[in-house]
Each structure stands twice: as structure tokens, then as C-alpha cells.
Design a protein around this nucleic acid. Structure first.
Length: 982
RNA sequence: GCCCGAGUGGUGGAAUGGCAGACACGACGGACUCAAAAUCCGUUGCUCGCAAGGGCGUGAGGGUUCAAAUCCCUCCUCGGGCACCA
């Protein structure tokens, strides 16, 4: 369009950009979004906000990755900003800030790619993000935006690690307690000591081992996820179901390695139970519940024949089927395998009562000549070499090998063979099972494969048996295991009988018997594993840990921070060799690693050895460490003496849930991606609970209300090789999509680098302005639903802002177009209906419908302006205030032009006058047999009889009802009249 | 395989037992213009009909109800989580 024909004061992208820069500058220089604390370092409070009720609105902070933001990222940031601005106008003191999760793989990988030190790239990337977020107009308190890589921040990350390290979990009190109190408990004799020697009489080494064994952070040799492609070990949560690293899709291998672990499993029950106190979606609670994977059952000890005192302990959820256990299985890496494996195969006399002799099948898959130790060794080698992926794809066929050993079923004394098989995992339960093939499908398949007896001890339902033409006691005819409910049978010995009991009663009875006899006890098992907490990467928080010749020693608080040394060779040692050894880059910083320190007592902490040489821990903490507590640091970001001032923490912790009960979480409203369901959201809850137990925070949970924003999807295109092509270069011709002259296939995918379908917000700011961009993202659909990006749709919301502007400002002169004439009743009624609806929608995060209501009002206003030449001042001001949270720059500009000096940030959001919400007349649809046949106009509030009379009085309805018998008339006043005819 | 969630015009979506399709995009028509853009006004679920008006319609089938996109059952498709978890 030729610029000279555009009215001078039209709301174009140029004007939008001018307005936006002006207000972004003013917000910054006037400290508009500085949120005061009631006390402490950030208590400067010129606007008197600190006395207001507090509201903490939080986004999951981003990894500043190099390529900058795409339009999918700000969705949540806009939503929280709209909500925060709305609640500021509802007289809340709102805390809203944005920091950077800058340690970890993404930042480091980008640094490696570009050959630049990660500190440099991280700083550049943060600057880019800050610029892009500022251009978005978000109202963050800039003083509170920490980066996890700031030394002043990670000093406290290290401090929290020490808090965890210097704690133990008191199962009786069901909370973590300081390690010094553990020593008191040892002295008081609460826990056993080696040979019952009093704690103080133990040697320093024994004291230390005893204490270290109960710490919440510990070093252990465990089967861990080793990812040579990344050169580091990973937590279970960072490995995909396919056995690949979540970052980079490299293969992951299970390897026994000595690593730092955090004892998150101590919190399994609380992490599970406290979900009930949180306002999170059911789906994300379910993901966490499944991940924690609580199972209740019993542990049972099976004595191994010929090995006095050796029991195999199993966990089962079905103790009611104990009498049906006909064999046992140990995981290939179970420590007892070597102990119990026989030297020779048993003689045939074992099988005299069997229909056939299955011993050859039991000797494994590598031939019949190996004696048991060799057969078992070869099978273990075979099984442990499998990747998770192979193990899963092989899951259909059960494999295993007999150990030559037998155990005794403690219920009935029968002798049952012990196998090694890879369908039993060392990492779950006790790593050993009792196998009940009649009532467990996996055991059933294994038993079929190895000709093992199948003994039904639960009577299947008649229907189940009939469907399978099977008998209740002869399981040889069954096509599958019976896993349903039923009545126990064949389950009695001289001491206890389950026969005739239903499954639930049988479980209870046998569990009591197990406890009474000391054979077993009720038990709970979790899928959740302890958190593997060390990484062999450079770009992370150093551990505040050194080693003496015995093991790890924690540094005292006053030696923090342990600053990450500057090294030039920061690249991780990566390879594709699964047997490569992890090599932490920090090990190359020899001068840093070797430290001479004087660590004052106590002895049980490994201290008190005088000045001597130590070696620093060269692993670093994982990505998630810094994100576990950043929301606490936002509260008091400049405090050099404490993680957070207690009084400040407490002022933000106040608040109640909608039902009046106190908040369980300190953050009132948290928005972020669902991909963190079992990563950040679980880890942060764990750390918070430790801090809560130790008295450092006053709420048991971090995040009260959580919303997972939906992904923004965008068309992505693949060529004939299936490779993604740059979406911005694809053209549509005659209904087909073409890239460089070749036709490509269109799909819809999550916006991002890998699908080459990113759209940069910078382009949208330039072409439409940030207000249009914000409005578009909020108008696309409900916050928690995924939605496709469509640049063409943006003009709709841009036109709205243009019309809004035109209704209030003369496009030719730039003068405000408001009148002081009274507002007509129709407009005022619409205005108050809009206020009521918008208020409601904003509070419930239905920003898309709130915007639709504003469209409607503005469209009406357009006709008012066409008629009267101006907008009534009352309507103009109210509309501007309602638009303000969504499109704050244009609202500020209009507010100023309407004669106000100060920002509208702290103005009061409009409230509807109930008097103007009452309709004088209502239109009520009239149905005959549920089909709408007419409409009647009624005075508001008239009774049922008046509805029916008016409906019968309608000529069209009267005509349709003549000669018809009406059997019933349903009237919902103001809503519907329905005539039911014979 | 198990467990969640979702399926509504050409498109994004609205309506959570009471008028299906608010609002927006697109499309079509009109006004303005030499013309185009921009802007403004109107039409727009499908279908039969000149019209008045009728029929159909919320993934499919069934059910509950005076009344169902909404509640219940079965199935299909898509998305997500878990997956030999004892």
C-alpha cells in the first residue's frame, strides 16, 4: 500500500512498534514491575503494594539455547503475564519474574558446536532471550531474574545439596532430619551398630561408614544409564522408553558405575499422597503416580535347599497365590546367582512324579553339555549384553536357565526349582520372584516354555472357564493365566488355610500368617528409583565435595561457593563404544582438582583430619539441580547470607486454595510444558520437601496450581526421502505443496528446529507488533490445548486493535474521539455484560473467549461511533482497562491519551454493575417434542404459567398445536418451553 | 497389551443437560475507488424449495431423558503416558 494514502494516525505496525518501545522503556525506567517484599532487601515500596495479598505467578524458565525463541515458546509466558496483569488490577501484589536455566546439555552442546566457551554462548543467548521477552511486553520484575549459572545462585544450589547430603530419612517420623540427629539416635541405640558396639566406641572409619550409609545423598555403585554418545550417565527420567537419551537420541546402556545418588525413594509415599493437595490436571498427576508406581504386597523368604541360612527374598503383589508357586526366578544380575548355582545337574529321581523329564530344556540355550555354572554364566552374559530396546523386542519369547538349585515353598514345603531369566529385573522389588504360572501371564508363558507345573490356587469364574472350555483345577488345559478375582483353593497347610476365601481376604490372611511365622511381611515397592545425580559434563554445578582416601567428604558451608574452574578443553569425551569409561572434563583441571584443605570435625563427617590434600569431585550436577529451587530464589535473589530470608519466604507462602484450605504450595500459579511431568516437576517437589523437613521453607509443596500449556503446532514438510525441508520455503500451488520445484508432504508437528518449521516472534513483532502477537496467541484456543500456528489468522486480531484504536482516536488528526455525552442504555448494558463475562473468563484462564467478548463490544462500539462520531468516555476507559492485561502497550497509550499520567498497571479492573446485567425481556425458544418451532418474547422473571400461556399464544405454535393432544409441558423459566404431544 | 485425553462448518474454535456452530480466519456479494489495496456493510453447516418453510447434522452404532456435542454402553481414529514392574 502506498504509505502516503494511509491515514497518519492509523494503528499500523509502525505505530504499534513506536507505542510498544515507548511503554517498554517507561515500564523499565519507572520500575513499574518492581514487586516489593514486606521486608528485607527488596522492600522498597513506593506504590504501597506490599500490604496487599500476595500472588506468585511463575513460568518454567527456559534453557537459553542459541537459536532464540520461536513463537511456540512465549505462549505460556504471555498467559502468565496476562493473568499477572489481571490480578495486579484486582489488588494483588503479584510476583512475576523470569530467569534462565543456563547450565546443562543444551547450552553446552551449542557451545561445543560453535567452539566457544559455554559461559560466552550462555551470556549471548540470555541476552537474546531477554531482548525477545522485553519486546513481548511481559511485566517481569527484572531484579529477580537469576541465571542458574550465576555464582551467587549456584552457591546456594551447592548449599542445598549439602543440606540433602547432611540429612537422613527418619522413617518413623516420616521426614528428613539433620545428620547430627542421626548420630544422637545411634548413641541412643535406636539403630543397630556393627556387633552392637556403642557408636562412640567405634573407630572413626566405622562411624563414618555407618553415617554415610543413611545419607540422602550418597555415592553408590549401581546399574546406571551410560550414554557414551553424550559421554555421561543419565537419570532414568532422561531415557526414553526406546532406550535412547532424551537429548540427542543416543543409545543408552546399563552399566554398573559408581555415581552420586539422591534418595528420592524415601519420599515416594509423600510425593504420591501430596498430589491430592495440588491443583494440577488429573492427567499429570496420573503420570507422576504411574512413574512412582506404588505396589502393595508382601515380601516372602524362600529357603534355598542345601544352603543353610540362605533365603531368596521375593516381593509379590499376590501373596494369596503363594501355594501355587512352582518355581522361582532370579534376575540375571542378582547377587545370589553365584551363591546358589549348583555344580552338577540334579539326578532324574527329582522328576519321578513328573509327566516327563524337562531337564534338557532347562539347561539353557547354549547346549546340553555345560554344567550349571557354565550354563548360567553364558546365559547371564547373553542377557546382560542386551540393550533395553532388544530386551523389549525379545519380550515375546521367554528365555532362562536352571541353576540346578531348589528352594522350598514355605507354605507347603514343596521343592521348587530356581531359574535365572531376564524377564525378572534386578531393579524392581528384590530382583527375585516366586513364579505362580497359573495366575501370572509371564510366569505362565515361562512355565509353558520350560514344562514347569501350573497349579491353580484361585478358582476362576465359571464364565472364564466356560469361554475357554477349561477345568478349574487342571491348568494344563488353560490357554492363559487366570489373573482375575476368585476363591482360593488348594491353599492350606496344618497352620493356615486360605481355601474358600476371596482374593482380598486370602491376601490378608496369608500376610498375617507370614508375619506371625516370620517368613515374610506386608511390603510396598515402587517403580521410582533413586535419582542418579552426577554427570560427566563440564557445564554444571560443581559438587561441594572432596575425597580423602576413604571416600567423599562434604565441604563446610563457609567454603561455598565451589566455583566452576575456567578450562579451555571443556568438551565431553563422547564415543559410540558402550564399554568406554566416563571421563569428566573437570578431571582435566588438575590444579583445581587437587586441593589442600583443613576441614574441622566432626569425625563421622570425614572431617577433623587437619590440613591435608584432597581431590575434588569432578562430576557436575545435572541440568535439573538449578531448576529445583529457582522459584525460591526469585523471592530474595540478592541475599548473600541465606538461600531465602525466612520472613520473605513466609510472606509469599501465605494464601488459600479455592476451598479455603491453606496453600500446600508456595507458587500460586505455575505454567509450563508437560514434558517435565516426571523430570523437573518430580525433582523440584523432592527438594522442596527436604527443605520443608529441615525447616527452610514453610509449605510442603512448591507449586499449588499447575497448567501445562499446549504445544504450538505448525505445518512441517518432508521430501521424498522423508527429510524435513525449510517450511518457510514451501509454496502451495494448485493444492499441492512444493519446495524447490519438488512436491513435498505436509504434516502438522510441534514447532521447533528438528521439523524446520519455526516461526520467529521477531518477524511477528515487526509485521504486526507485540500486542497483536500476544492477542493472537491467546485467541488461538484454550491454554492447555495444542493448536496449529497460522500466520494468516493474525490479521483478525490485528484488525481488532486497529478498530479499537479508530473508535477512540481520530486516524487523521490523532485526537481522542471520546464524548462526555451519556452512554445509551443498549451500549451500557452490553458494556456490563462484557465486563462480567471477561472477568469470569480471565479468572478461569479462558483468554480466547474473553477476547471474543471484547471483539463483540468493540464491534458494537464501531456502530456507535458511526452514529455519534465518538465513544462515550465511560465506555472508552472501561474497554481500555479490560484490554490492558492482554494488549498492554496499546492500552497504556490510549489510557494516556484519555488523560492519565500514570501507568494503568495498578488501576482497578472494571466490575459489572448487576443492575445492568438484568435483561428487561428475554427471548425463549419454544419446542414441540424437542424441536424448536418458535420463539417468544417475555418480560424477565415471569413465572412458568406465563411462559406456557405466551407459548400457546404464539400464532405459529398455536397452529401447530391445534388438534394435537399435549401430554406434558416442560418449562425452564428463561430457558425453554417444550410441549410433549401424544 | 494396559491406563489417560481428544474427535463439532472449508479452517482455528464456542456451547459441560435447555436455540449447535459465539468470536475469528477464509470464501462470496455489495459500497467507496479510474483501478487496486485498505476500510465499511451484508451472506456463509449440509440439503430440498421461487418462497414461506421442511429434512439432516457435533467420529460410528446403541441407550437414558420432555430435551444429549454434553450423561451411560460398545466400537473406530488420533494424541499422550506406561510397558516382562512380579
Amino acid at each position: 500500500m502506498p504509505a502516503d494514502e494511509t491515514p497518519k494516525h492509523r494503528y499500523t505496525s509502525a505505530l504499534a512498534n513506536e507505542i510498544e518501545h515507548k511503554w517498554q522503556d517507561r515500564w523499565e525506567t519507572e520500575h513499574v514491575f518492581w514487586t516489593p517484599n514486606r521486608s528485607g532487601l527488596l522492600s522498597e515500596d513506593p506504590r504501597g503494594l506490599a500490604s496487599r495479598p500476595h500472588l506468585y505467578v511463575l513460568d518454567m524458565f527456559p534453557y537459553p539455547s542459541g537459536v532464540g525463541l520461536h513463537v511456540g515458546h512465549p505462549l505460556g509466558y504471555i498467559a502468565t503475564d496476562v493473568y499477572a496483569r489481571f490480578q495486579r488490577m484486582n489488588q494483588f501484589n503479584v510476583l512475576h519474574a523470569m530467569g534462565y536455566d543456563a547450565f546443562g546439555l543444551p547450552a553446552e552442546q551449542y557451545a561445543v558446536q560453535t567452539g566457544t566457551h559455554p559461559r560466552v554462548t550462555t551470556e549471548e543467548n540470555i541476552a537474546t532471550y531477554k531482548r525477545q521477552l522485553r519486546a513481548l511486553g511481559v511485566g517481569h520484575d527484572p531484579r529477580r531474574g537469576i541465571a542458574t549459572t550465576d555464582v551467587s545462585y549456584y552457591k546456594w544450589t551447592q548449599w542445598i545439596f549439602l543440606q540433602i547430603y547432611n540429612s537422613w530419612y527418619d522413617d518413623e517420623a516420616d521426614r528428613a532430619r539433620p545428620i547430627a540427629q542421626l548420630v544422637q539416635e545411634f548413641r541412643a541405640g535406636r539403630f543397630p551398630t556393627p556387633d552392637d558396639i556403642p557408636f562412640d566406641d567405634l573407630g572413626p572409619l566405622e562411624q563414618r561408614e555407618l553415617v554415610d550409609s543413611r545419607r540422602l545423598a550418597y555415592v553408590a555403585e549401581a546399574s546406571v544409564n551410560w550414554c557414551p554418545g553424550l559421554g555421561t550417565v543419565l537419570a532414568n527420567e532422561e531415557v526414553t522408553p526406546e532406550g535412547l537419551s532424551e537429548r540427542g537420541n543416543f543409545p543408552v546402556y546399563r552399566r554398573p558405575l559408581k555415581q552420586w545418588m539422591l534418595h528420592i525413594t524415601a519420599y515416594a509415599d509423600r510425593l504420591l499422597d501430596d498430589l491430592d493437595t495440588l491443583d494440577w490436571s488429573d492427567s499429570i498427576k496420573l503420570i507422576q503416580r504411574n512413574w512412582i508406581g506404588r505396589s502393595t504386597g508382601a515380601t516372602v523368604a524362600f529357603p534355598v535347599e542345601g544352603h543353610a541360612g540362605v533365603d531368596i527374598e521375593v516381593f509379590t503383589t499376590r501373596p494369596d497365590t503363594l501355594f501355587g508357586a512352582t518355581y522361582m526366578v532370579l534376575a540375571p544380575d542378582h547377587p545370589l546367582v553365584e551363591v546358589i548355582t549348583a555344580n552338577e545337574w540334579p539326578g532324574d529321581d527329582i522328576f519321578v512324579d513328573w509327566e516327563s523329564n524337562p531337564i534338557d530344556a532347562w539347561k539353557g540355550i547354549f547346549g546340553l553339555t555345560d554344567p550349571p555354572p557354565e550354563a548360567v554364566r553364558r546365559y547371564r552374559e547373553f542377557a546382560l549384553a542386551k540393550t533395553d530396546l532388544e530386551r523389549q523386542s525379545d519380550a515375546q519369547v521367554k528365555t532362562g536357565v536352571f541353576t540346578g538349585a531348589f528352594a522350598t515353598n514355605p507354605t507347603n514345603g514343596s521343592s521348587i526349582p530356581i531359574f535365572v531369566a531376564d524377564y525378572v529385573l534386578m531393579g524392581y522389588g528384590t530382583g527375585a520372584i516366586m513364579a505362580v504360572p497359573a495366575h501370572d501371564q509371564r510366569d505362565f508363558e515361562f512355565a509353558r516354555e520350560f514344562d514347569l507345573p501350573i497349579v491353580p490356587v484361585i478358582r476362576p469364574s465359571a464364565e472364564w472357564l466356560a469361554d475357554r472350555a477349561a477345568g478349574p483345577t487342571d491348568a494344563t488345559s488353560w490357554p492363559e493365566a487366570y489373573v482375575g478375582d476368585g476363591v482360593a483353593q488348594g491353599s492350606s497347610n496344618g497352620d493356615v488355610s486360605l481355601d474358600g476365601l476371596h482374593v482380598d481376604e486370602a491376601k490378608q490372611t496369608i500376610t498375617e500368617w507370614l508375619a506371625r511365622t516370620g517368613i515374610g511381611e506386608a511390603s510396598v515397592t515402587y517403580k521410582l528409583r533413586d535419582w542418579l545425580f552426577s554427570r560427566q559434563r563440564y557445564w554444571g554445578e560443581p559438587f561441594p565435595i572432596v575425597y580423602d582416601d576413604v571416600g567423599p567428604v562434604a565441604l563446610p558451608d563457609d567454603m561455598l561457593p565451589v566455583v566452576l574452574p575456567e578450562i579451555t578443553d571443556f568438551e565431553p569425551k563422547t564415543s559410540d563404544d558402550p564399554d568406554a569409561q566416563p571421563e569428566p572434563p573437570l578431571a582435566r583441571a588438575i590444579d583445581w582438582v587437587e586441593a589442600e584443605l583443613d576441614l574441622p570435625g566432626p569425625v563421622w563427617a570425614g572431617h577433623g583430619q587437619g590440613r591435608r590434600a584432597y581431590l575434588r569431585e569432578t562430576n557436575t550436577m545435572p541440568q535439573w539441580a538449578g531448576s529445583c529451587w529457582y522459584y525460591l530464589r526469585y523471592l530474595d535473589p540478592t541475599n548473600e547470607d541465606e538461600m531465602v530470608d525466612r520472613a520473605v519466604e513466609q510472606e509469599w507462602a501465605e494464601g488459600t486454595r479455592p476451598d479455603g484450605s491453606p496453600n500446600a504450595g508456595i507458587v500460586d500459579f505455575y505454567v509450563g510444558g508437560v514434558e517435565h511431568a516426571v523430570l523437573h516437576l518430580l525433582y523440584a517437589r523432592f527438594w522442596h520437601k527436604v527443605l520443608y523437613d529441615l525447616g527452610h521453607v514453610s509449605t510442603p509443596e512448591p507449586f499449588q496450581r499447575l497448567v501445562n500449556q499446549g504445544y504450538i503446532l505448525a505445518p512441517a514438510y518432508t521430501d521424498e526421502r522423508g527429510m524435513y525441508v525449510e517450511a518457510g520455503e514451501v509454496e502451495q500451488r494448485d493444492g499441492v505443496y512444493v519446495h524447490n520445484g519438488r512436491s513435498v508432504t505436509r504434516e502438522l508437528g510441534k514447532m521447533g528446529k528438528s521439523l524446520k518449521n519455526s516461526v520467529s516472534p521477531d518477524d511477528i513483532y515487526r509485521d504486526y507488533g507485540a500486542d497483536t502477537f500476544r492477542l493472537y496467541e491467546m485467541f488461538m484456543g484454550p491454554l492447555d490445548k495444542e493448536r496449529p500456528w497460522n500466520t494468516a489468522d493474525i490479521v483478525g486480531v490485528h484488525r481488532f486493535l486497529q478498530r479499537l484504536w479508530r473508535n477512540l482516536v481520530d486516524e487523521e488528526t490523532g485526537a481522542v474521539r471520546v464524548s462526555d455525552a451519556p452512554t445509551d442504555d443498549e451500549t451500557r448494558r452490553r458494556l456490563h455484560r462484557t465486563i462480567a463475562a471477561v472477568r469470569n473468563d480471565m479468572a478461569s484462564l479462558s483468554f480466547n473467549t474473553a477476547i471474543a467478548r471484547l471483539f463483540e463490544l468493540n464491534n458494537h462500539l464501531t456502530s456507535v461511533v458511526a452514529r455519534d462520531g465518538a465513544t462515550p468516555r465511560e465506555v472508552a476507559m472501561t474497554l481500555v482497562l479490560m484490554v490492558a492485561p492482554l494488549a498492554p502497550h496499546i492500552a497504556e497509550e490510549l489510557w494516556e491519551r484519555l488523560g492519565h499520567d500514570d501507568t494503568l498497571t495498578y488501576e482497578t479492573f472494571p466490575s459489572a454493575d448487576p443492575a445492568w446485567l438484568v435483561e428487561e425481556t428475554v427471548e425463549v425458544p419454544v419446542q414441540i417434542n424437542g424441536k424448536v418451532r418458535g420463539r417468544i418474547q417475555l418480560a424477565a422473571g415471569v413465572d412458568v404459567a406465563a411462559h406456557e400461556a405466551a407459548a400457546r399464544g404464539d400464532p405459529r405454535i398455536a397452529g401447530l398445536l391445534s388438534g394435537v393432544t399435549v401430554v406434558e409441558v416442560k418449562v425452564v423459566p428463561g430457558r425453554i418451553v417444550n410441549f410433549v404431544t401424544a
